[in-house]
Amino acid sequence: MNQHAPVRKSRLDRSFDRIRALEEAGALSSRVHNRSLRKFLSNPLASAGVIMFLIILLTAIFAPLIVPYDPLKIDLRALLQPPSAEHWLGTDKVGRDVFARILYGGRISIFIGLGSAVAAGVLGVAIGCISAYKRGWLDAVVLRVSEVFIAFPQIILVLLLVSILGQSLINLLLIFIATGWAPMYRMVRARVLSLREEEYVQALEAFGISTPVIAYKHILPNALGPVTVQITLSTAAFILAEAGLSFLGLGVPLQIPTWGNILNAANDMRILEQNWWIWLPVGLVISAFVLAVNFIGDGLRDSSDPTQQG
């Protein structure tokens, strides 16, 4: 019974050979720190994500240095012009430069996405950490409240708030925070519930250290890993949500340029059919940005997971 596998070297085998040769030459040393960083940077998708993210972010921040046009300035002499040397991505139906609007719109869209994700994260973490550590009725109440928030359809919440308070950037932020904190809270809670049983926590209790110090100073840093991943992923989700809501006319007031508001122009059938430069580039930018953020999020998750290869 000689079913011996043929001797063929896989890519993995070759990398093993290389490591072994280096090890035996004594060329490798233990650098335990920065393992996560190294792993993150050696992930090609994550690195591509970071580069794409930075390009979009920096062009949005330095928009005035890149395009000479004011994104709000109406130019009735240049309506619906196709891309040209003068207007790289053409103009919309009131003659505003589309490229300028995409760059300036990025500022608001990224602010909304990142801002609401971070704010929701902070809120979720602050509540989750203490309620999971203290348990008891507080935890039970907050848990039920978070379930209500998760179960409540976002779109109805938006309609409700828009009809009561009117359209505004702040309202949109508030809505995103209101719908975004609960998943973060639950994630932190689950993490803290297991961390609170760790013996270093009990040791602090045995010394009579106060509850907030134990919860926020000693437990929290160990619970933050998954939250940062969740924040990046939520950023992408919120940017998409902003685009979607603005497209429906429920998001940021139309006069403020955001990626969603630019897309909003495309709910006109004629524009959709004839003026592709108005909606296609911005659509691509949104996709690219969301993809970049997701790559970063996945990279972060993998690099913080010790069971993954690296």
Binding site: F16, I19, E23, E24, L28, R35, Q309, G310
Partner: peptide
């Protein structure tokens, strides 16, 4: 039998 974790052998 050698292990190759973390780029070490």
């Amino acid at each position: 039998t050698y292990f190759y974790n973390d780029n070490r052998c």
